[in-house]
């Protein structure tokens, strides 16, 4: 080993000793791993179902074509694709996906279908993103309302396990009383996927944009699970409840730099949401 390599090793090992101490596994880690495990099992099942449905669809289309060759037949819409679950970002093929509630939660969140145009990515969960890591980023991310612990201080964040809201009123109240928190609109009644929903808009507080927060300059951790609200963003929270299930929280996060075309795509994705309700 030459001198430079030895010096590099020394510096890296010296710096590594300054890393934070890690003790035993925090309590909130296990339920989050279980959610992931449930999501992975479900995604594998959905992939099998989608494959079978696709095969049936192909056979039926073939049969129809065989009966009346050369004549255009009305076709059934293709079955939704299973949402991909992966270790990292995945480029989504344009089409309709079945997003299982289990991808975001171990609570009984509703599943839904959503139609995504070209150019969108998933980060390997249920999230939809476009232009990630650019000032034009837009995204739709889902949570279970009763599983997001609202931090007391959004700038400081923490690795703790703060209490989660049980209702939209509690969500609004917790965000409004959050130190360094966002500007929170009054809740308005709307609909999503054909179901009644409540929408709350968040604006970034100007006073915070230069603050040195825990995870980066001006980056606010509103709740756990690593949701970070950036200085040049706005967000709309949609809360939808389905009988017998947990309340779904869809967060539509939009950077100020997002183009009108991308915003229109985002809206078309939201408009395409259809909940899969039990018979």
């Amino acid at each position: 080993m030459n001198d430079l390599e030895a010096r590099i090793r020394d510096v890296l090992h010296e710096d590594a000793n300054r890393a934070p101490f890690v003790g035993t596994m925090p309590e909130q880690v296990r339920p989050r791993i279980r959610r992931r495990q449930a999501a992975t099992v479900l995604a594998a099942s959905l992939a099998s179902v989608a494959l079978i449905a696709g095969s049936v669809f192909a056979v039926r289309s073939f049969d129809r074509g065989a009966i009346t060759p050369g004549v255009t037949q009305p076709t059934d819409p293709p079955p939704p694709m299973a949402f991909p679950v992966a270790d990292g970002p995945v480029a989504l093929q344009a089409g309709t996906y079945l997003v299982s509630g289990a991808l975001a939660s171990e609570s009984s969140l509703p599943s839904y279908t959503v139609t995504v145009p070209d150019g969108w990515m998933s980060d390997g969960d249920s999230d939809l993103k476009k232009n990630e890591d650019t000032p034009q980023v837009i995204s739709i991310v889902q949570w279970a309302l009763d599983e997001i612990g609202i931090f007391e201080d959004a700038c400081r964040g923490e690795l703790g396990d703060p209490p989660a809201p049980a209702s939209v009123a509690e969500l609004v109240s917790a965000l409004r009383s959050q130190e360094s928190g966002p500007i929170v609109s009054n809740p308005v009644t709307t609909s999503l996927g054909g179901l009644p929903a409540t929408r709350v808009d968040l604006d970034y507080p100007d006073r915070m944009s230069q603050a040195g927060c825990r995870v980066g300059r001006g980056q606010l951790q509103l709740w756990g699970s690593y949701f970070v609200f950036h200085p040049n963003h706005t967000a709309s929270l949609y809360v939808v409840g389905v009988a017998g299930g947990a309340q779904l929280l869809l967060v539509v996060d939009t950077a100020d730099g997002a183009s009108a075309a991308d915003r229109a795509e985002l809206q078309s994705i939201l408009d395409s949401v259809r909940f899969v309700l039990a018979e």
């Binding site: 710096d15 590594a16 890393a19 934070p20 959610r35 495990q37 270790d87 995870v215 690593y226």
Partner: peptide
Amino acid sequence: TRLAFLLTRDAASAEDLAQEAFIKVAGRL
């Protein structure tokens, strides 16, 4: 966490990212 710290040079981010990575991989164990 030490690896994340060397890559991010930030203690808080390293702690969060290492934990998130663990949850992600353990979820697919």
